[in-house]
Design a protein around this nucleic acid. Structure first.
Length: 462
DNA sequence: TCAACTCACACATTTGAAGTGC
DNA sequence: AGCACTTCAAATGTGTGAGTTG
């Protein structure tokens, strides 16, 4: 395997490998060991991103050991506790809609993935404390496989059913408010509800068109809001695989900052889920319908509930009849079904809009423009990958609309295993790292399974 | 044959644009 | 002219179930 010092020589001794955790599984199937290696970092390429250097790094405490993940969904899991690495001392994250997640997790959370991309429900929504109110931070989210197995619904429970598919390109969702001050992040919960899950590799950049607005608007800088027009992101997953969302908090003045002031990664065991193209567990379907406002029509009183749908089919067969039914009136807001709304059921996303009186994070203009924009143009540099590193796996076909403007096409970080002969070994070293930002994020080390941890610390990364 | 997947559908929600009044 | 508020329409988010694929 590759030691981090080998991968990032300029890190010096600012990091260390922790001892493997109890229960860590190092026997990942070879399919998951598809890995990545970066050649020597081409630091001169990063010179244009130097303007956001943070204050002196802090000394880090040893991160706590990460407990092993529960073996399977739907079984008795250990008391869920957020797991984190703490290169940002004092920073803590709590899952804001934890009760909802726990409810789903007790059944075995399933997330629909579609070609067009499906939102997560529940969404990851967290509250953060302990940030420096003045410093700027980035919030990132990614989703990593939990183990090396493919799963199958056996009528009552999920059971492993063979080897997992080869891992897909790592993608990292950047919260659209990033970068923002600690005060901003701590003011209200941070929601990642815009992230989408897909099983399609045809759009290698993870974008979907903007929901509203002129089609030619594209992505760019929103002068009115003073923030970046971020598209929703799509994370590529395999169906019937178990995944774990992770949230990363990076102290950096801007997206293209070369020196990060520290990194903290968090994962909440109760947010683990199995990706599916159609719900397998009827209890999950019931929970989703009960909790998701978009599925209101499928509730007992909804016009799209089974009773109503069956009635419509009968009416169709019998011929045209008056459409109105007594049920319609009972679907008024405030009915019994609305009582199930809570947490994610109100997805109006309060964190998207700055609080009254608060100016939106001022765009730091390095590199000749807003830093986030610079990131979109040079994601590889932001993530430390040399510019010549391939950003797209040749095995993934070109998107039909790949002629989109550069910011659009470059806005997603993808890190691929190197092609044969490229200098990047196709086969990765055996994994012994735990989930960490450097794995699923900028430097996707082989497999983010529950192993030892990599303590990156707050040293400058280059 | 069967499991997994895709797609069209109806309905609910969200959100920007347009309209209105002050 | 500018602002706040309301209304409207279109886009988007849902689960369902039939059809398709391998």
């Amino acid at each position: 395997m590759y030691h981090p010092r080998e991968l990032y020589p300029s890190l010096g001794t600012g990091y260390r490998l922790g001892a493997p955790q109890p229960g860590a599984d190092s026997s990942f199937p070879p399919a998951l060991a598809e890995g990545y290696r970066y050649p020597d970092l081409d630091t001169p390429k990063l010179d244009c991103f130097l303007s956001g250097i943070e204050a002196a790094p802090r000394t880090l405490a040893a991160p706590p050991p990460l407990p092993p993940l529960p073996p399977t969904l739907g079984t008795e899991a250990p008391p869920p506790a957020p797991e984190s690495l703490h290169p940002l001392p004092g920073v803590s994250l709590s899952l804001d809609n934890r009760e909802l997640w726990k409810e789903f997790n007790s059944v075995g959370t399933e997330m629909i993935i579609t070609k067009a991309g499906r939102r997560m429900f529940p969404a990851c929504r967290v509250s953060v404390t302990g940030l420096d109110p003045e410093a700027r931070y980035l919030f990132l989210l990614d989703v990593v496989p939990v183990d090396g197995a493919r799963y199958r619904w056996q009528g009552r429970r999920w059971e492993p059913s063979g080897k997992a598919e080869p891992r897909l390109p790592d993608r990292v969702y950047i919260h659209p408010d990033s970068p923002a001050t600690g005060a901003h992040w701590m003011r209200q919960p941070v929601s990642f509800h815009r992230v989408k899950l897909t099983n399609s590799t045809l759009d290698p950049h993870g974008h979907v068109r903007p929901r509203l607005g002129p089609p030619d608007k594209g992505w760019g800088w929103d002068q009115g809001r003073g923030s970046l027009l971020f598209p929703p992101f799509q994370l590529i997953l395999h169906s019937m695989h178990k995944y774990q969302p992770r949230i990363h908090l990076v102290r950096a003045a801007q997206l293209c900052s070369q020196h990060w002031g520290g990194v903290a990664s968090f994962r909440f065991p109760e947010t683990m889920f199995i990706s599916v193209t159609a719900y397998q567990n009827p209890r999950i379907t019931q929970l989703k319908i009960a909790a998701n406002p978009f599925a209101k029509g499928f509730r007992e009183n909804g016009r799209n509930c089974k009773r109503e749908r069956d009635a419509r089919v009968k009416r169709k067969l019998r011929g045209p009849e008056p459409v109105a039914t007594a049920t319609y009136g009972s679907d008024a807001p405030g009915g019994p079904c609305d009582s199930t709304l809570g947490g994610d059921a109100r997805e109006s996303d309060p964190e998207q809009a700055p609080a009254p009186g608060e100016a939106a994070p001022a765009p730091a203009p390095p590199c000749g423009g807003p830093s986030a924009e610079a990131y979109l143009l040079h994601p590889a540099a932001f993530h430390g990958a040399p510019g010549h590193l391939p950003t797209r796996n040749p095995s993934f076909p070109e998107a039909p609309d790949s002629g989109r403007p550069a910011p659009y096409s470059a806005a997603f970080l993808e890190l691929q295993p190197g092609p044969p002969g490229s200098g990047y070994p196709a086969a990765a070293p055996p994994a012994s790292f735990a989930s960490h930002f450097l794995q699923g994020g900028p430097f996707p080390l082989p497999y983010p399974g529950p192993g030892a941890y990599l303590d990156v610390g707050s040293k400058p990364m280059y």
